[in-house]
Amino acid sequence: MPDPMRIRAVMMGEVVDVKILMSHVMETGQRKDADGNVVPAHYITEVTATCKDKTVMSAAWGPSVAKNPYFSFRFKGGAKGDKLSITWKDTAGGTRTDEVTIN
């Protein structure tokens, strides 16, 4: 199973400031290993953030995002104590969802 994300979500005035670290190889499919074989592509394609049953952010990713991505965004409409859930999906059918409480 993929490793958990590290998520921080804090109120900054009106908006929720979200910072996420994800554990992922983000293989582009362009690299070769020591034996000259292509390392198959394996990267996150989709990231969504849900708060109170609403999608507050969705992103489509490609192979040019760094290994172990760091991702941050802000959204309106959240409050202290609300739950924020983040999900990613990757090219290999892998997925991971983690939840935090906004503070």
Binding site: D3, P4, R6, R8, K19, L21, M22, S23, N68, Y70
Partner: peptide, 14 residues
Amino acid sequence: MFGDENPAELWQLR
């Protein structure tokens, strides 16, 4: 850009 965030935290968690 990372501020206080450091991917090392993923290793700490594990």
